[in-house]
Amino acid sequence: MGATRTGLIWGALATALCAPLLAAGFSPLLQYRQPIYIIAGFAGIAGLALLLLQPILAGNYLPDISAKRARKIHKIIGIALVLMVLAHVIGLWITSPPDVIDALLFRSPTPFSIWGVTAMWAVFATAILAALRRKLRIRLHSWRYAHMMLAVIIVIGTVVHALMIDGTMEFYTKIALCALVVVATAIRAKQLFFKS
């Protein structure tokens, strides 16, 4: 693969990950928010951006990275994803406890909460399953199936959650990032389960 093409792929990925965060940094809503609320919001955006990396790393679609290295980074990003979810939920809890309690108990008036909370539990379940995979001696096929099912729940839950929210994310970068996450996940799922 040519150096130019490699550079372009990495550049495009960096843009896809950074543009939404950068655009949200210019949101007029930030001026009315306390630091902890701002951090919670950006943890959510960063989590969505990290979701894009996961199927790309799992499928090892990036140039000049060994399969082993891609797996390792996939694991590290997975841990980072759990931390982003925790920062998002804890930050929002500190900002407004009753709103987060309502969301966690699935009784929130906001229609996007149920999607976000479902995705949160799927992220936690994925982390627990990944940690216990060796101990429980889960077979590769079962592991892949369970992990992919959880990944699909996480992606759909997070994307719907993000799209329904009127928040700091800029409209077009949000749509583009969500679309990329869905497409990347679909490509990886197709590769895994519909090998031709």
Partner: peptide, 8 residues
């Protein structure tokens, strides 16, 4: 009023 917690 400004949007907060996803809704104005």
């Amino acid at each position: 009023i400004v949007p907060a917690f996803g809704q104005a």
